[in-house]
């Protein structure tokens, strides 16, 4: 069993809901971001701006696991790479070694409170009790392993049952994120990767990421072309409202 995720870029509406869901699920401090939605400029006329959601790739050959001097970063049998914050010494070598830069060092200045200068909200106070973030250690996405473990203990199937599925996947209103077992050829993720020519970021590093992307532009595969009717209505609506504003902010080189 190896948990993995497929991100359909043709369906992503750039709504940031996955990032918000992660923030809520893990009570992330203000300066901490586990998944990111990054944007870049293209030279395709009319499509000057494009985005891509990124998060820890849960690499099969994870450099962060190999370099950690305290064995604080570990890989489970199901492929999830996680950080034991009680062991992390905060040397930040894992941050340096991650070619995808999906790790963040948590220092106290990254937790000024959501309303700096004011008292912490009830949400923040609850978060400090429920999900303690240790200053001086490194953090990253762990595919919501608590949800997976708790769900599987109840006999649920991650990727199918919401209770056992990562929060970002549950919240994605465009269903751009799919979660499942990469080792199971009949799982939805495996089928998507096979049928839509899923690709990984920088496979040449030999890290074998567990996060795959499918897209009609980046993959350069004819089968990846997403017919317009398959794109969600919210996607089209979002593009129409955001494109002008995004162009205004990012400008053109």
């Amino acid at each position: 069993m190896r948990w993995g995720m497929v991100i359909n870029l043709a369906k992503c509406t750039r709504c940031h809901a996955c990032i918000a869901a992660c923030r809520i699920e893990h009570f992330l401090p203000l300066g901490m971001t586990w998944p990111r939605l990054i944007a870049w400029e293209t030279d395709i006329p009319g499509e000057e701006l494009s985005t891509i959601p990124v998060r820890c790739n849960q690499c099969k050959e994870a450099p962060c696991v190999e370099v950690c001097p305290a064995e604080a970063t570990k890989k489970r049998e199901d492929g999830i790479v996680y950080v034991d914050n009680d062991k992390c010494v905060g040397c930040r070598y894992c941050i340096i070694a991650c070619p995808y830069q999906n790790r963040t060092f948590f220092s106290k200045d990254k937790d000024p409170g959501y309303f700096p200068g004011s008292e912490r909200t009830r949400f923040e106070k609850a978060g400090h009790k429920l999900y303690e973030h240790q200053a001086g250690t490194t953090e990253k996405c762990d595919f919501c392993l608590e949800r997976i473990d708790a769900g599987m203990a109840k006999g649920l199937v991650p990727g199918k049952d919401r209770e056992a599925t990562p929060a970002c996947v549950n919240t994605c209103q465009a269903r751009a994120l799919t979660f499942g077992d990469l080792d199971d050829p009949n799982s939805e993720v495996s089928k998507l990767i096979k049928d839509k020519n899923g690709f990984q970021l920088h496979p040449e590093y030999g890290t074998e990421p567990s996060v795959y992307y499918i897209d009609y532009k980046l993959g350069n595969a004819p089968s990846n072309v997403a017919p317009r009717e398959e794109q969600t209505a919210s996607h089209l609506q979002h593009l129409s409202t955001m494109e002008a504003r995004a162009k205004q902010i990012f400008g053109k080189k």
Binding site: P69, A70, V89, C91, F106, S107, G136, T137
Partner: peptide, 15 residues
Amino acid sequence: FGKPWRFYQTMPPWS
């Protein structure tokens, strides 16, 4: 280090 006093955890037998 973010946690300097955990320095020893980088050496055997702890790691």
